[in-house]
């Protein structure tokens, strides 16, 4: 990212980069990007339009517009309760995942110890293996413990991928902090708790916020695990949405679309908040050209 800070040798012409449309390759590449965004925009537009349509079939645009589908969907799917459940699950998952994940990330970032590889693999596997694979055995265990179907079961299931996620996001943040600061604090007599609360904590706030918002997005958007472990009173909005489309009964498609638009809008708001703290490309790897 900071490549431009390095003065380029005078032989190479200085690069003031704006999108290049000059070459054939440039046109093709930017054309493809444009096409993708056009497709994406049209896709969202159709759903938004339909959610405001009285009827729409076969014509370019809906016959007439109304906003009663939003109210209908809200009442029919009992959305205030669904959103309450979603918020409860999401907040509990964020809080617990942060509490478990940040200390573990600290230990992994700062220490080399025998067996570190095994522990690292243990924290990587739940991210690498798709939820539906471990979700079925996990749901079976939760059913056996009579936890499935309750909010607690949904929270526990959602913690499985999010705790490792917090660890993975936090490790680079912690590595960026100079260990000399902690060493200095220790020399001055601070205990581990004090170092966490008064030295590391404030420095880690941006990272914790980033991880927290991303876990929130992941949990609200997590379909598979919630679908496998939730019951009628503990379904989050994704599961209700899926049920509205795939479940039994006939509903106006506009109602489903209205609910999907509400879901996407709230997810977008959360993602944009998350992006204030992290650059999407830095989530995966830190840039090595500083």
């Amino acid at each position: 990212m900071t490549a431009a800070n390095i003065p380029a040798p005078s032989i190479v012409r200085p690069r003031r980069r704006i999108p290049q449309f000059s070459s054939v390759g440039g046109v093709i590449v930017w054309g493809l990007v444009g096409l993708f965004f056009l497709f994406l925009f049209a896709l969202i537009a159709t759903v938004v339009l339909d959610s405001f349509a009285t009827t729409w079939f076969g014509s370019w645009l809906p016959d007439d517009y109304t906003n009663h589908w939003y109210g209908d969907a809200w009442a029919e799917f009992n959305l205030s309760e669904v959103l309450l459940v979603t918020a409860q699950v999401a907040i509990a998952v964020v809080a617990i995942a942060t509490l478990i994940g940040v200390p573990a990330a600290y230990a992994l970032a700062r220490r080399n110890f025998p067996g570190k590889r095994v522990i690292t693999v243990l924290f990587l596997l739940p991210i690498l293996i798709p939820p539906i694979t471990y979700g079925i055995p996990l749901a079976t265990v939760l059913y056996k413990l009579q936890l499935a179907g309750s909010i607690q079961g949904v929270i526990l299931a959602n913690l499985v991928p999010t705790v490792p996620f917090v660890v993975l996001v936090m490790i680079p943040f912690i590595e960026q902090i100079d260990p000399k600061i902690e060493a200095a604090a220790r020399m001055c007599g601070a205990s581990t708790t004090t170092i966490f609360m008064r030295v590391l904590g404030p420095l880690l706030i941006p990272g914790i916020l980033a991880a927290g918002v991303l876990v929130l997005v992941r949990t609200v958007g997590m379909f598979e695990l919630t679908f496998l472990t939730s019951g009628p009173s503990s379904s989050t909005i994704v599961v209700v949405l899926y049920g509205a489309v795939f479940g039994a009964g006939i509903r106006a498609p506009q109602e489903v679309d209205a609910m999907a638009v509400l879901y996407t809008a709230s997810m977008l708001v959360m993602l944009i908040i998350a992006l204030r703290f992290v650059n999407p490309t830095q989530l995966v790897t830190r840039v090595g050209t500083d």
């Binding site: 339909d50 958007g221 379909f223 999907a260 638009v261 977008l268 650059n279 490309t281």
Partner: peptide
């Protein structure tokens, strides 16, 4: 093409995050 610095880079990468927010149902519909 986009590896260097150029104007709108942040905008484009931000726009690319939109599909993550869509969810399967909106994508399907």
């Amino acid at each position: 093409r986009m590896r260097g610095r150029f104007r709108f880079k942040r905008t484009i990468t931000t726009l690319l995050v939109v599909p993550i927010a869509l969810g399967t149902v909106l994508t399907a519909d």
